[in-house]
Design a binder for these strands. Sequence first.
DNA 1: GCAGTTTTTTCAGGTTTTTGCAAGATTTTT
DNA 2: AAAAATCTTGCAAAAACCTGAAAAAACTGC
Lengths: 248, 248
Amino acid sequence: MLKPERQSLILHQLNIHNRVLSSDLSQQLKVSEDTIRRDLNELADLGKLVKVHGGALSKSYGHTTVRSEIYAPDEKEIIARKAMGLLHDGMYVLMGGGTTVSALVRLFPENLRLTVFTISPNIAIELIGHPNIEVFLIGGRVTAETQICLGGEVIHRLSEIRVDLLLMGTTGIDTAAGITETDIEVVQIKKAMMKAADKVAVLSISEKLGTSHRMKLCEIGELDTLITELPSDDPAIQPYARLGATIL
Amino acid sequence: MLKPERQSLILHQLNIHNRVLSSDLSQQLKVSEDTIRRDLNELADLGKLVKVHGGALSKSYGHTTVRSEIYAPDEKEIIARKAMGLLHDGMYVLMGGGTTVSALVRLFPENLRLTVFTISPNIAIELIGHPNIEVFLIGGRVTAETQICLGGEVIHRLSEIRVDLLLMGTTGIDTAAGITETDIEVVQIKKAMMKAADKVAVLSISEKLGTSHRMKLCEIGELDTLITELPSDDPAIQPYARLGATIL
DNA sequence: GCAGTTTTTTCAGGTTTTTGCAAGATTTTT
DNA sequence: AAAAATCTTGCAAAAACCTGAAAAAACTGC
């Protein structure tokens, strides 16, 4: 294992987990902790991570979104891992915003070949530099609350594209209320996204099961796949399976 | 085994494995490690691989896409500070990409009220959460090299907007050659941006003064303002003032 | 084919980089 | 406050590197 390889592996780990431990890396990469510490310090000097006692934290573009700021990172990683199974070389994929979708993007191996459309600047930036993924960002008005591109122009652009798969998070999901959102504009955008995609997959932590909000996006049956961190035979998600969504 | 044979074999190995060790290649090709090292250095000079201690890595991923390590941050902050003087409440501003423009955005005080259009996902994200700035991201294909949105759709959208001021960085700037870029697509986008703006301001560290590249964007005289980190009476920028640009 | 030239390779040496270890300092946890 | 974990520093060994000179190979014009 060459030093630059080791260092870029460390950065990759950071991208996925947002944190690394010197002791873990030492075992995993079969080098002494001193070496890991030296690597971490070098990478910290280059500004690629933040060194802390015991390991390092990722710093993504200026404002450090560390793991602790992401809600339920472990669950989201499980979800992301399951969602990877839906992706195959050559696919055209449309991606929404949110930290769950971000977690998925971070798992993309470098040999995965995709064409990705997204309304999230964050997702676009995460994918920049990936050697085999072409990224199209659909532009619009960007707001702090949603962190995605909104507006009529986005809907118009979405009407012009056709993709194999839509991957998006959700705000509320309930057997009776269906998929719901708080923001009417988000509903409009998501409806347009669903129209553009042959298959629709929703990523959601189980905590959101049974919650609902004011703005209705669609019924559960309109989804093709629902992915949570729960095992697919968990009683909590059986009702959703009966409504027609494939559970992963 | 002839030298070109050996070298193309090395490149072949790299394509497959993404890495090679000098020691391995030495054994495999039955030549001394010195010869291998010389080969690797030659290929590295040609830009076909990245030489590292112990061997070489393929150029494809991770190692080349350095997470925007900001070059000359101090100079860029001086430039950004000067550029702030061009901005006033209520303005419509169009912003290009690049670290110099990012430095400017970070200086925006909370009470600054602007409407910002940008082709850079990074700029859009920097501005997310600013209480008094409305951000419109103009979408398109995003590439690793430029980190901005490219494509015909961007140019079309730019043709539909009209802003008070364009703020952008540059690649090459020279009294004779004017403003130049390495990428023809970037030139097209920047020309469209210039058309959309009443006034054009270019931010450039003084290091770029006197440099030129293959693709011409415009003459110095077509700029309204040129901002470098040098004092406005520095002899190095006087020639640009004579060509019609206001120097800050 | 052959003497002369150029290119390529190897080898020897001294230098630099990388890594692991140990000792003592520092931080975190109990 | 003591104990445990982690960090820093200095050092030494191993590996990799570079330089220049000499040997080997390939090429040149005659």
